[in-house]
Design a binder for these strands. Structure first.
Length: 563
RNA sequence: GCGCGGGUAGUCUAGGGGUAGGACAACGGCUUUCCGAGCCGUUAGCCCGGGUUCGAAUCCCGGCCCGCGCACCA
């Protein structure tokens, strides 16, 4: 186990779920420190992707009904067919295997695969025969209600909640694009073989933003804020670019400004929570790698001890989801977009002469008139009523020229989706923060977490574990709690030992109550990264800590150096 | 899911058919005027189930978990 994971488990960032029963792969518990870390990361995410956008946050059920995932395509595309070798036991994805061996496309259904395997007498690479094909589903299925109930699934992404509430959300935003809707929550995928601790989970935490736009305007009014940012882009041909986002759009590496904007925002966010720029890149999905709904997709990847791992996906989902939900639910999920100026169109139109049609066609007259509304004007026209074709000469209608005014059009918005894997992000933040250095000839393990994400912000430590140091320290500890800090009190062991304890979990500041405290009501603040100390007045302590925790200021700005 | 290797205290580890040893951590006390000091004490362990055996943590089988490779990761 790595030094970091040893700390993460021992000190309480992550624990194996169900440990006393032997545990199960693909599930972790957030221990006290890890939970706090993730919450803080979530709050910074909210700032970047909800508060600073024209966006809102919602919260939908983790269980969805079958219809939702039939429409989204997950029920079918999450149901792969597997074939297993009788001899060596290897399992292959049937459609991939058949494509590879025979270069034929086969429908990924049990029947089609079975037929193909039998017809071509397919054998495993080891020479063994295949058992009958079996489905493998990554969807967690459940039953809603008693008895047979209704089929439900644990959601494989939070995104669908935003799509199925589209009409309500559109109304909430007073019928105007663009707008964003975010959701932070759990999602579930019944992975075949989860590995690598927090990297691949069966239940995981997502933060997703669905940004609905007019497909003709895939731009963002704040693009200029990030346009000059230099990012590492690996395009779908595996070419690495170190390039300004503006240039990446101009050169067509990134499809449009809106994707580039979210790449920029994502990078800024990740740097803000402590991801290292030199260990961050954005990689474009290859054509055969994209999800069934995506037109273009860029992943944020970070370098960790597991190699480059994907932590964010920024996809252009186009109108795929809204169209599918519209088709299957029968709801209109389009937006009316008014033109800047109404467009006037002159056109010729057929108008029925009822005084002629009525007597001639009797009961059919009304239906014929309705059909005539949409007929191209000619000398004579033909309409079909109840399967009967009826020709009408010009005596039955007039052709008049009318002027129509079009005030706008209805469109189905496109969706740009930045989707964040919070578990992997939290883990990567820890890895990028982990460091060892030498203090007074002794190795020190330290988490150099950004002040804004650190689970314990301040530790209050009596220099000596006895009166009056302890009582005074406890007073300061209580006071800082009422001031809203995440603060710990610790009087166990020597002062040096305690400093190391807090270095190890990334606490940026330690407050020490020493002899001088009782002379002039001052304490020292120790900086985790430099181990420097300054002396400040107790009265100003809360204010100073608040500034320190929300900025990168040096403690030496707040008091004279001590030791 | 397959193959290989592994699972001993909170963590790391020694040993191994006959009462399981250490280090670090944690806790209590003494000590202690600023970076893992010292002394005394305490808590705490053979992944789970079955089999073989007088006796299993040790051997065998199965399961679970971890690591690596293959496959999977929409």
């Amino acid at each position: 186990m790595s030094d970091l994971m040893e700390i993460a488990i021992r000190r309480g960032f992550f624990w194996q779920s169900f440990e006393i029963y032997g545990g199960i792969a693909g599930f972790i518990d957030y221990a006290p420190l890890g939970n706090n870390l993730r919450r803080k990361i979530e709050n910074i995410w909210r700032k970047y992707f909800v508060i600073e956008e024209r966006a809102v946050e919602i919260d939908c059920p983790n269980i969805g009904i079958e219809e939702v995932f039939i429409a989204s395509g997950h029920v079918s595309s999450f149901n792969d067919v597997a074939i297993e070798c009788e001899n060596c036991g290897r399992i292959f994805r049937a459609d991939h295997y058949i494509k590879e061996k025979l270069d034929i496309e086969v429908d990924p259904s049990i029947e089609a695969v079975k037929e193909a395997v039998e017809y071509y007498q397919m054998k495993c690479e080891c020479g063994g025969k295949f058992k009958d094909p079996t489905p493998i589903s990554l969807m967690f299925k459940t039953t809603i209600g008693p008895g047979k109930g209704k089929v439900g699934y644990l959601r494989p992404e939070t995104a669908q909640g935003m799509f199925i509430n589209f009409t309500r959300l559109l109304h909430y935003f007073r019928e105007k694009l663009p707008f964003g809707v975010a959701q932070i929550g759990r999602a579930y995928r019944n992975e075949i073989s989860p590995r690598q601790g927090v990297i691949r989970l069966r239940e995981f935490n997502q933060a997703e933003l669905e940004y609905f736009v007019d497909p003709k305007f895939k731009r963002h009014e704040k693009f200029e804020d990030v346009a000059e940012d230099v990012v590492s882009l690996v395009d779908k041909f595996d070419v690495l670019h170190r390039i300004k986002l503006r240039e990446a759009v101009e050169r067509g590496i990134v499809a449009h400004e809106l994707l580039a904007y979210f790449i920029g925002r994502t990078r800024r966010f990740l740097l803000d929570i402590g991801i290292k720029d030199e260990k961050l890149r954005f990689r474009q999905h290859k054509d055969d790698e994209r999800a069934h709904y995506a037109a273009d997709c860029w992943d944020a990847e970070v370098l960790t001890s597991f190699g480059w791992i994907e932590i964010v996906g920024i996809a252009d989902r186009t109108d795929y989801d809204l169209k599918r939900h519209s088709e299957l639910s029968g709801e209109d999920l389009s937006v009316f977009i008014p033109y800047p100026e109404p467009i006037k169109i002159k056109k010729k139109k057929v108008v029925a002469k009822m005084e002629k049609i009525g007597p001639t066609f009797k009961q059919k007259a009304k239906k014929i008139a309705e059909k005539l509304e949409n007929v191209e004007p000619k000398d004579f026209v033909e309409v079909e009523v109840d399967g009967e074709k009826i020709k009408l000469t010009s005596e039955f209608f007039d052709v008049v020229e009318i002027e129509e005014e079009l005030t706008g059009e209805r469109i189905v918005p496109h969706v740009i989706e930045p989707s964040f894997g919070l578990d992997r992000i939290s883990y990567a933040v820890l890895e990028h923060a982990f460091d060892k250095d030498i203090v007074d000839g002794e190795e020190r393990k330290v988490l150099r977490l950004k002040r804004s994400v650190t689970p314990i912000e301040v530790a209050v430590l009596p220099l000596l574990s006895r009166e009056p140091f302890t009582t005074k320290s406890l007073e300061i500890y209580s006071f800082l709690k009422t001031e809203g800090f995440y603060v710990e009190y610790d009087d166990s062991g020597s002062i040096g030992r305690r400093y190391r304890r807090y270095d190890e979990i990334g606490t940026p500041f330690c407050i020490t109550v020493d002899h001088q405290t009782f002379e002039d009501d001052t304490v020292t603040i120790r900086d985790r990264d430099t181990t420097k100390q300054v002396r400040v007045s107790c009265k100003k302590l809360a204010e100073i800590l608040r500034i320190l925790l929300s900025t990168n200021k040096d403690i030496e700005e707040f008091g004279p150096r001590f030791r």
